[in-house]
Design a protein around this nucleic acid. Sequence first.
DNA 1: CCGCGGATCTTCT
DNA 2: GAAGATCCGCGGA
Length: 202
Amino acid sequence: MTLRQLLQKTRRVDRAFFGRPAAEVARELLGQYLIHQFDGCELAAKIVETEAYLGSGDPAAHSARGLTERTRVLFGPPGHAYVYLIYGMHECLNLVTDRAGQAGCVLLRALEPVCGIEEMQRRRDKAKRLHDLASGPGKLTRAMGITRAHYGVEVTRGPLRVRLTKAPEVFEIQTATRIGISTSQELPLRFFVKGNAHVSVR
DNA sequence: CCGCGGATCTTCT
DNA sequence: GAAGATCCGCGGA
């Protein structure tokens, strides 16, 4: 599919979409699209796995230990990107949710490539199969060309943005516990499209 | 298919 | 100074 075609079957998202509780936004982001246009590249993918990190009562959230230089954007208005480096080599993309000051966010954990698949394969030379391209939080940022340079950018408009589908698909949402955390492991805050091959962990 | 360990560096203690 | 919202390759079953 071309980006032109994808833009026709989707519409702009407003800031109010993100200005709600993180778990609610995390569920509704499934089946929506992430687009990145830059350097002549037109990349787009469907969101198939997310995790919610709550602004309060969630020790696993980066915002739990207060406002620091790194978490500054989490405490600002919703609809912005929070990108950080993990394990010294991978970058993770989160979208800020809730009201300003609440510091909730949604981590994007897996995407299904839609536009610019060859370019994504070039960026992810280690990936052998299509469903390895963006099936993880570090993989998807690499595939989509997202880095810490995108820290704080608006995702309701601009070169890196979310688009909502005009014709929602019917699929089952599976709920699970979050991956890779050492506290609050029991909270059911991970969501993914049931049966989708691009999900990171089944 | 599964488990294990190394890579690599920013952030916070 | 240690941990961390990960990924990949290796070895064995």
